[in-house]
Simulated assay, not measured.
Amino acid sequence: MGGTPPATPPAAKKQRSFWKELPILIGIALVLALLIKTFLVQAFSIPSASMQNTLTINDRVLVDKLTPWFGSEPERGEIVVFHDPDDWLAGEPTPDPNALQTVLSWIGLMPSADEKDLIKRVIGVGGDTVECKGTGPVKVNGKALNEQEYIYPGNTPCSVDDQGGQFKVKVPEGSIWVMGDHRQNSRDSRYNQSDRHGGMVPVKEVVGRAIVIAWPMNRWDTLPVPATFDQDGLQAQSSAAAALSVAPQGLALAGVVPVVWWRRRRVAPAETR
């Protein structure tokens, strides 16, 4: 009857090949991994035996970098990664990474060779008095710590030597006193008392708290605060970010999944109309 012909439906938009989208997705994953490394969690490799047997050489730990952004400070008993405060690593060999290691460190899967970082256990925080006499125990504010849960088997809590093993120090506000779990094989606060910080680590140099051993798989474990730090006024607050136990690449891929779903969902309806 001479009516207006129906409008021609729009042509279905051809879905882009998965292989063409793959470089975009990889790019998104790398950007997310970089953001996660910078602000949330980063992987670090253990280079020495100073934290045995809690951590062994070549363990990979995940470090919570989020809570310091909200003003959280290290607590007694936590294992923390921190920047070298005053040439503690002087004389240590500097690794020479290859091209692949450089890329992996950039996206947070490996630590940067340029960063001089250490990992130790927090024994005292600002305002604490920490002391060692004889072979121990270590005392914090006059209270003895029971460290057999984590110090290296056969070690004594305190070292009997005149180079720093015997001490009594007051930790200033804004600093922490750190010691390795392998007491007789750790160059920590005890042996750096002649530096400009008196062996203390400024809180501003702390990268974050190690929360989990992520690799190798047979070493996977969380890194809680030992029970001895929960006694009589020494209570250590657990990190709210303990749930961040996923490697940066895992979080990045998880972030990509919604993007893939959204992009493909936008195309699918055009094909079914």
Rank of each mutant, 00 (worst) to 15 (best):
G2D: 06
G3C: 03
P5F: 09
P5T: 11
A12G: 12
W19M: 15
I24C: 08
I26K: 03
G27N: 03
G27T: 04
L30N: 12
L30W: 10
L35N: 10
A43P: 00
Q52Y: 12
N53V: 07
T56I: 07
N58R: 12
D59A: 06
K65P: 05
F70G: 13
G71T: 06
R76W: 01
T94E: 09
D96Y: 10
L100Y: 11
L104P: 08
W106N: 14
I107R: 02
G108H: 04
L109F: 12
M110A: 15
P111T: 09
A113T: 02
I119P: 02
G124W: 02
V125P: 06
G127W: 00
T129M: 06
V130G: 15
T135V: 06
I151S: 13
G154D: 03
N155W: 04
N155I: 01
T156A: 14
D161V: 02
G164T: 03
Q166N: 02
Q166L: 01
K168M: 08
V169K: 05
K170V: 10
S175D: 09
W177S: 11
V178L: 09
M179R: 07
H182E: 05
D188G: 12
S189H: 02
R190C: 05
S194T: 07
D195A: 12
D195N: 12
R196H: 13
H197D: 10
V201M: 04
P202Q: 02
V203K: 10
K204V: 05
V206Y: 00
A210R: 01
N218C: 07
V225W: 04
S239Y: 02
S239E: 01
S245H: 06
L251M: 14
L251A: 05
V256W: 05
W262H: 14
R265E: 11
V267L: 09
